[in-house]
Amino acid sequence: MARRIPQWTPPGVEWVGADLAREDGLVSLFRGTDAVVHLAWRFQPARRPAVAWQTNVLGSIRVFRAAAEAGVPTVVYAAHLRWTLDARGADAAGGASALL
C-alpha cells in the first residue's frame, strides 16, 4: 500500500494506493497478505504537529489494528526519530538529555 505508487515493483509485491489519513478500508486491503511493512510518516512534523499526529500516530494505530483484525502474520514497522539540539547542546523539548 502506498499513497503514491512507485514505478519500481520488486518480485512478489503488489502496490495498492491508499492514504492513512483518510483510509478506513485497511482491513480489506490487508486480508490475505503475508506481511505489512509500515514505513509511513509525515515529514517536518514540528511545523504542523496536528497533521503529523494524524499520520504518524493515529495512522500507525490504524495500520496495527487493521493488520491484527485481518490476521496478517507479520508487521514490520520502522519509526523515524529526529531529535533537534540547540546551539548549546540542549534538546529542543527542554529536557536535560535526549535518548537516541
Rank of each mutant, 00 (worst) to 15 (best):
R3Y: 14
Q44G: 05
N56P: 01
P11E: 15
R4T: 15
L85E: 06
A40T: 09
A50I: 00
R82I: 07
G59W: 02
A18H: 14
T84G: 10
V16T: 14
A68P: 04
V57C: 13
R22A: 09
A46K: 00
H80I: 06
V51H: 07
R88Y: 03
V75P: 06
P11A: 13
A46M: 05
L29V: 04
L26N: 00
V37Q: 12
S97Q: 12
S60G: 10
D91E: 06
V51G: 08
R31D: 10
A52H: 07
R88L: 08
A78S: 15
Y77C: 08
Q7I: 02
L85W: 01
R82K: 11
V63W: 03
H80Y: 13
V16G: 08
R4H: 12
A90I: 04
W41A: 15
A2N: 12
H80A: 12
A70V: 07
T55M: 04
V76P: 08
V27C: 06
R31L: 01
R47C: 04
G25F: 01
W41C: 12
G89K: 03
W53P: 07
H80N: 12
L81E: 11
E69K: 13
S28I: 01
A52K: 00
A93V: 03
A98P: 00
A78I: 15
R4N: 11
A2W: 06
Q54T: 13
G71N: 06
F43Y: 14
D24H: 10
V57R: 11
G59S: 01
P10D: 07
P49S: 11
G89Q: 04
G59Y: 06
G59I: 00
P6A: 05
L20E: 02
G32S: 05
V75M: 06
Q54K: 14
W15K: 11
G94T: 01
S97R: 05
T84E: 12
T74M: 10
A35M: 15
R31K: 13
P73R: 14
P45V: 02
A35W: 04
G25I: 08
D19K: 09
R82W: 07
G25S: 11
P11W: 01
G94E: 02
P73L: 08
A87V: 14
A66T: 05
V75G: 07
R4P: 06
F43A: 10
G71V: 10
A87L: 15
Q44L: 11
R65H: 08
L85R: 07
G12P: 05
T74S: 11
T9R: 14
R3P: 08
A21L: 12
L100Y: 01
D86A: 14
P49Y: 04
